[in-house]
């Protein structure tokens, strides 16, 4: 049984269309860096074991010092690895049939969440940069909206072209439901209220998924 993705504060009737994390290559890079860092104490242990007698006597002061240093390194390494994974994994972009939510875990104690109604989207741009980006098909999708925070960027996400198409498809659905005239009116409302926090009048449209 496949579970439907959900998130806190979902609106009634809201459905998750896309739940995006950064590409797995970004996670792999983090893993590789921490694997290299794990080799440092392993190499130190081997060197100390072969070139000194410090590790031979488990009751000696040298053994105690080395054990405490290695344990401290291991604990800090583990914590930093977990926090790096957390920063990767909690960077999420959610596209629902009503809105776009941008969740950014900057550091352990710094998290920002911003959201935008889907009908406010004006322009969707996608890009794939570099050899690896083109080979592994990951890149950025930039969404221009008529709001205070005018730009949303989905960074290093897999298949940016497909994501951009999905968002455009959702917008087309909203447009078809409401008709071009209503959309133009909504656009006008949005542009007028862009500098203020006041939402546009009328019930916001919902794309059927």
């Amino acid at each position: 049984m496949k579970l439907k993705p959900t998130f806190p504060n979902m609106l009634p009737g809201e459905q998750v269309v896309l739940l995006l994390h950064r590409h797995g290559f970004v996670a792999l890079r983090i893993v590789l860096v921490y694997c290299l860092l794990a080799l440092v104490p392993a190499a130190a242990w081997v060197l100390l074991g072969t070139r000194t007698t410090a590790l031979n006597d488990a009751t000696s002061a040298g053994f105690a010092v080395i054990t405490i240093l290695l344990a401290s390194y291991a604990l800090v390494w583990g914590l930093l690895f977990f926090v790096s994974w957390l920063n990767y994994y909690l960077d999420v972009w959610i596209v629902t049939n009503e809105r776009i939510i941008n969740i950014k875990q900057v550091r352990l104690f710094h998290r920002t969440v911003s959201e935008q109604k889907l009908y406010r989207v004006q322009d969707v741009t996608w890009e794939m940069q570099g050899v690896l980006g083109n080979m592994l098909k990951f890149g950025n999708v930039t969404i221009q909206t008529a709001a205070e925070q005018s730009k949303f960027t989905f960074e290093h996400i897999p298949d940016p072209e497909g994501v951009a198409k999905s968002i455009m498809h959702l917008l087309e659905q909203i447009e078809n439901q409401l008709g071009a005239n209503t959309m133009a009116k909504l656009d006008g409302d949005v542009l007028e209220g862009a500098g203020s926090a006041a939402p546009p009048r009328g019930k916001p449209p919902v794309a059927k998924v």
């Binding site: 993705p5 959900t6 998130f7 405490i68 344990a71 401290s72 604990l75 800090v76 914590l79 977990f82 926090v83 957390l86 994994y89 909690l90 999420v92 969740i103 875990q105 352990l108 104690f109 998290r111």
Partner: peptide, 25 residues
């Protein structure tokens, strides 16, 4: 110093685990 490091490490670990389970859906 090892005990101090352990306490600081424990606090950060609890915060990180709480964040992961709270915001990791």
């Amino acid at each position: 110093p090892f005990a101090i490091l352990l306490v600081v490490w424990l606090i950060f670990s609890i915060v990180a685990l709480t964040k992961m389970l709270r915001f990791g859906f």
